[in-house]
Amino acid sequence: MKIVAVTACPTGIAHTYMAAARLEKIAKNLGHEIKVETQGAMGVENKLTENDIRRAQIVIFAVDIEVEGRERFNGVKVIQVSLQEALKNPEGIFAKIQR
């Protein structure tokens, strides 16, 4: 499966990056292809291109704040969870996607 994700938290110091690392790892273990854009204290990193988004079968927003450039994802299937959820139970998110 081709997945893209965005992580973002209010201070943008820790959870944005922890969640990104977590999602990348689980996806890899499950054999998915994933690209995670982080919106943190360093601004937008690993930015998702139009092409990335078009090719993706699903988008995960693991966010506690508004996603920057949300309009980029219009027309794509989006699943939104809190950052805490992404850290606590990332397997659960992927299980939901596969269903």
Partner: peptide
């Protein structure tokens, strides 16, 4: 514990912090 002095722009230290946050998942 991570304490960042608010300097507005992306700093070199923030790169270290984000790396640290990612590593904590390892």
């Amino acid at each position: 514990l991570i304490a960042l002095r608010n300097q507005g722009s992306a700093s070199r230290h923030m790169q270290v912090f984000s790396m640290l946050a990612r590593k904590l998942m390892n």
